[in-house]
Amino acid sequence: MIRSFGYNEFLFLLSAVQWTLALSAIAFLGGATVGLFVALGRTSTIKPVRLATTGYIQIFQGTPLLMQLFLVFFGATVLGFDINPWAAAALGLTLNASAFLGEIWRGCIQAVPRGQWEAGSALGLRYPGLMRYVVLPQAVKIAVPPTVGYLVQLIKGTSLAAIIGFTELTRAGQIVNNATFQPFLVFSIVAALYFLMCWPLSLLSARLEQRYAARSR
C-alpha cells in the first residue's frame, strides 16, 4: 500500500529530529570528555603519551566515520557483546568526535603563549595547576568558535548512524520514503531539517570568531 506524504509523515520526521539531537549531544559530551585527555596527551612532554594520542587521532581522522561505526557495531558482536544501534552509534561517534576535538584543542592549548607556561612554572605551579588555572582558561576562549563549528560536522555525521539501523532523522526519511515513494520531497524536507539545526550554529560560530578576533586585536 502506497501512502502519500501528509501531515503524519511530516510529524514522524519532525519527531526523529529529537533522536538526531540526542545522539549529537551524547557524542559531543563524550567526545569532549575524551577529547580533553587526547588534547592533553598531544601536548604532553612525555613522548610515548604524545605518540599514542597522535596515532589515535590519525586513525580516526584517516578512516571514514561509516567504517568506524561498522567496526564498533559489528566488532562488538564479534567480540561477544550484544550492542544495540543506540550504543554503537553513541560509542562510534564519541570516539570519532574525541579525535577531532582533541586535535582542535591541541592547537588551542599550543596557541597559549610559551611565556604563560613559563610564568606559571616559575611561580612554582606544577602541571595540573598550570593547566587548570593558567593554560586551559586561556585555551578555552580560543577554542569556542572552532568547537561550535565542529558541532555542525557532528550533527551531520549522526546521519550515518542510519546505516547501522539507528532511527534518527535520516533513517526516518528512508522509512517514510519506502512508504510514500516520494524521495525528492521526503529528502528535501530531511535536508531542510538538518539545515535548520546546523545553520544557527554556523552563524554562532562565525559571530564568536569575529568577537574573538576583535578582542585579541
Partner: peptide, 24 residues
C-alpha cells in the same frame, strides 16, 4: 620577572598576585 611581563591576561591584577600563594 620576564621581559614580556607574562601576566595572566584572564586574571585581574589581584588574582595574578594571589594565584601562587593560594595554589602553591
Amino acid at each position: 620577572v620576564f621581559q614580556q611581563f607574562n601576566l595572566f591576561p584572564h586574571l585581574t591584577v589581584l588574582q595574578n598576585c594571589m594565584l601562587a600563594p593560594l595554589k602553591v
